[in-house]
Structure formats: structure tokens, C-alpha cells
Amino acid sequence: MNHQFIKKLYYGDIPDEPGSGAAYIAKADTAAWPLWEVFIRSKRGLDHKHAGSLKAADATMAIENARDVYTRRQEGVSIWVVESKNIHASNPDDAESFFDPAEDKVYRHPSFYELPDEVKHM
């Protein structure tokens, strides 16, 4: 007999029951609304920083969703959104050849110059 003991589930692993509303909505949702990346500028003069992602039907809705999801606690003064599919990322498998070679090239840091005393804010 197949014992149905309690199986430990991790977040995201919870199986969909056939015909459950949640699964249906999740699928319909994925098909209909694209994913957007949200960038928030927290203060004037600072740059936009990646805040997270969300689902929206178009750019207008994405900006409003971002306002409601990511700026509820006064986090921002400006919002950028971009459809996630338009972002191209480096491959994590390339990390060694991409980034490790910079490790032993300390001379690329501009820390070998004598700064005159008159130069401030460096």
C-alpha cells in the first residue's frame, strides 16, 4: 500500500491539484500578462535601482502596479519599467572567464597616484 505520510513541502513546491482555481489562474495569468522589471529612483539626483518584478498587461499598468507594489512606503520619486524579455543577461556559466581574470589586476584601480592636497572629494 502506498503510504500517504505528510510530505515536507518547500515554498514553490506545493503541487497543483487538478482543476484547482489557483493553478488555472496562474496559467491564464502567465499566458496573458508579461513580466516587467521595475526600477525605482529613491531620491532626486540618485540613479534608478532594480526593485523587483511584476506582472502587467502593458507599460501603463506596469508603472501603476509598480507604484502600488514598490512605493507604498515612500521608497521612490520616479519609476522605470521594462519588459523582462528585453533584458539580456550574462550567463552564470561564463562567470569564471568573465570576472575572475580581473582578480589579480590591481593596477586597474586608480589607487597608485599621488594626489595633490588641493584635490578634494576623491
Partner: peptide
């Protein structure tokens, strides 16, 4: 709400 983002919007 119909989706998470709109659930937050209407609750706001």
C-alpha cells in the same frame, strides 16, 4: 484580487 498586483492596488 484577480492578480497579486491588483489585489495590492485595490487594498491600497
Amino acid at each position: 484580487g484577480p492578480v497579486l498586483e491588483q489585489d495590492i492596488a485595490i487594498t491600497n
